[in-house]
């Protein structure tokens, strides 16, 4: 019980701090799915799983940023990997458990962004009714607003990551109950996740000539690799 509470508190704190990076602390794009999942894989000894999870989520992150909060996805993916390891749920790159973790982590990014949009609307209403510009010292009022918003975003990020990781672990239990991959198909999930991510990447930057360029590179690389 005590250990569970420690885990929840640690996930909440780590999630809060990590998700602050996107909007508050530095915005150096360090908190991205690839670094977070690679770090989680390194901590748990699941390097390969962390790498494939990070690659898939990182490729999905190329969709426009107003649609999903990919730092939250990365934090949920990394936290879920840590929890799965702690709860002795075996994760193999591309197996059903891996697919479940990746799916819940990516869904968490969309839900978190939707919640943030709603929060911004409510903040706007509050600020309209009690504007820092009407305070005696607007500079100090703005600074107080910044500090309050940092605290609020920490709480929101911590909640999102903790809840997302819990859901991902539940999904992993469910996926494990479904059974093992059919022979010859293990690893399909990782490949599909990355292939789909590549399509997302193309959709973000590409016109038809960019797709043609990617196709030419694909053919040349396959030929060179034999």
């Amino acid at each position: 019980m005590v250990e569970a509470l420690i885990w929840i508190a640690a996930l909440f704190a780590a999630g809060g701090v990590l998700t602050l990076e996107r909007r508050c602390l530095g915005q150096m794009a360090v908190v991205q799915p690839l670094p977070l999942c690679v770090a989680a894989g390194w901590l748990t000894g699941l390097e390969s799983q962390g790498m494939w999870l990070g690659i898939a989520l990182q490729l999905y992150s190329m969709v426009p940023r107003d649609q999903a909060d990919w730092p939250v996805s990365g934090a949920v993916g990394g936290a879920a990997l840590l929890l799965a390891h702690r709860l002795r749920i075996p994760v193999v790159s591309g197996d059903p458990v891996f697919c479940a973790l990746t799916a819940v982590a990516s869904a968490a990014g969309f839900l978190s962004r939707a919640a943030e949009r709603r929060g911004a609307r409510l903040d706007g209403e509050r600020i309209r009714s009690c504007s820092p510009w009407s305070a005696a010292d607007p500079g100090a009022a703005c600074a107080a607003l910044v500090h309050r918003m940092i605290g609020k975003r920490f709480l929101a990020g911590g909640t999102a990551v903790t809840a997302g990781a819990a859901l991902a672990v539940l999904a992993a239990f469910g996926a494990r109950a479904l059974g093992s991959p059919a022979p010859g198909l293990a690893g399909l999930g990782a490949a599909m996740a990355v292939i789909f991510g590549s399509a997302v990447a193309m959709s973000c930057v590409a016109g038809p000539r960019h797709v043609a360029l990617a196709a030419a590179t694909f053919v040349v690389a396959c030929t060179v690799a034999g």
Binding site: A56, Y60, S61, M62, V63, P64, Q67, A68, C99, A100, T102, A103, V104, S106, A107, F110, G189, M192, A193, I195, F196, G197, S198, A199, V200, A201, M202, S203, C204, A206, G207, P208, H210, V211, A214, A215, F218
Partner: peptide
């Protein structure tokens, strides 16, 4: 398939990643 997926959505808004959970399922 990856290239075709990219080509199909180049004309639309790239909301493709919203289908990630479906693809993984």
């Amino acid at each position: 398939t990856g290239l075709l997926g990219g080509l199909v959505v180049t004309r639309g808004k790239p909301t493709l990643a919203m289908f990630a959970p479906v693809v993984l399922a």
